[in-house]
Computed example of a mutant assay.
Amino acid sequence: MSTQSTSSTTKLRSAVLGAAGYSGAELAVMLARNPYFELSYAFASAGRAAEPFSNLYPRYQGVVDIQVQPWTDDLVEDLADKLDVAFLALPHEASEAVTPLLLAKGIAVFDLSGAFRLKDPALYPKYYGYEHQHPELLDQAVYSLMEWLDKPLPQLVSVPGCYPTACSLALLPLLKAGLVADGCIPVINATSGVSGAGRKAALNTSFCEVGLNAYGFFQHRHRPEIEQNLGRKVVFTPHLGNFKRGILATSVVTLKSGVNAEQVAAAFQQAYAAKPLVRLVNHSPNVADVAGTPFCDIHWQQDGEQLVIVSAIDNLLKGAAAQAMQAANIKFGAPETAGLFAGAAE
């Protein structure tokens, strides 16, 4: 799947747009420790004053001290010969607006927003609240659910959402193996920590205010993304929980008559035995076990034709920054997990 090769002596010059936010900050740290990439630039919104990254995240003082500069679109012209790849951790409409400018200068784009995830532009007004201005890019973008990608990555890569990553990784092995009953509509209940709402302060997502509640009934923007991945309708109900980071998704399906536990296990083993960032575990996953890691942990339990699959990820890592880094590693010919583990030898 590599489209370009690199080495530790020829680093890819990279920038993070949205480096002040949680996912962008995680990416900045990964790029800084990835021996195949160079964190050349870090940008935040235009209204901010330039300041060191370690001012925003003091735990990285002496580790990542790059200046986080305010972004303006006229910077694209100056970056054309200084940048190989840009990671966008921006609001959806902002990503959609800047992406064509970067692509026109030959800069590869890894977009963490939802701007290019859905192939049908008609879904954007309903689920994202705006008309898509660049529908021609929806066909160009490749959706990088890396464990299921079977095509090369182009210059525009759309990184999956956090909920869709957890849910799709849990359900795709069963659907691809033909084990789910015809007409079955998977029922998914998933709970995210408060970091999924971003760093900007808001009363309803304040750690002190959040208990446990469901939201986004039938209208959450990740529902059509999950349905696009699975090729069938789902009932998806997200929840907000009183913890910092992580997602726990519980998916329920009806199996075809006669499907046994050995067939289910074989489907998961065949799908993920060679995938380093998916762990098939023998206990119900806990978000505490995946927080701060790039893994997705998956466990299932069967009772006759009923199957419950539980999956857990860190929403900021496997659900965002780590998946983007994983995709960039593969696109540019670096080891798949380069930069994903602090202190690990690559």
Rank of each mutant, 00 (worst) to 15 (best):
D81P: 09
K82L: 08
K82S: 12
K82P: 09
D84N: 14
A86F: 00
P91E: 11
P91K: 01
P91G: 07
H92W: 13
E93D: 11
E93S: 11
E93R: 13
S95C: 13
T99M: 08
P100F: 06
L101D: 08
L101Q: 13
L101P: 02
L101M: 14
L101W: 07
G106Q: 06
I107Q: 04
A108L: 00
V109H: 07
F110R: 07
L112I: 07
L112G: 09
S113H: 08
A115E: 01
A115I: 07
R117P: 07
K119D: 13
D120A: 08
D120S: 06
A122R: 12
L123F: 14
L123P: 02
Y124T: 02
K126F: 11
Y127R: 02
Y127I: 03
Y128T: 00
Y128F: 15
Y128R: 04
Y128L: 15
Y130F: 15
Y130L: 15
H132N: 12
Q133R: 14
P135A: 04
E136Q: 13
E136R: 04
E136V: 05
E136S: 10
L137K: 00
L138Q: 04
L138P: 10
V142T: 12
V142Q: 12
Y143R: 12
Y143H: 15
S144C: 12
E147P: 15
W148A: 09
L149M: 12
L149R: 15
L149A: 11
K151G: 00
L153A: 05
L153T: 00
L156T: 07
V159M: 02
V159S: 03
P160E: 07
C162A: 14
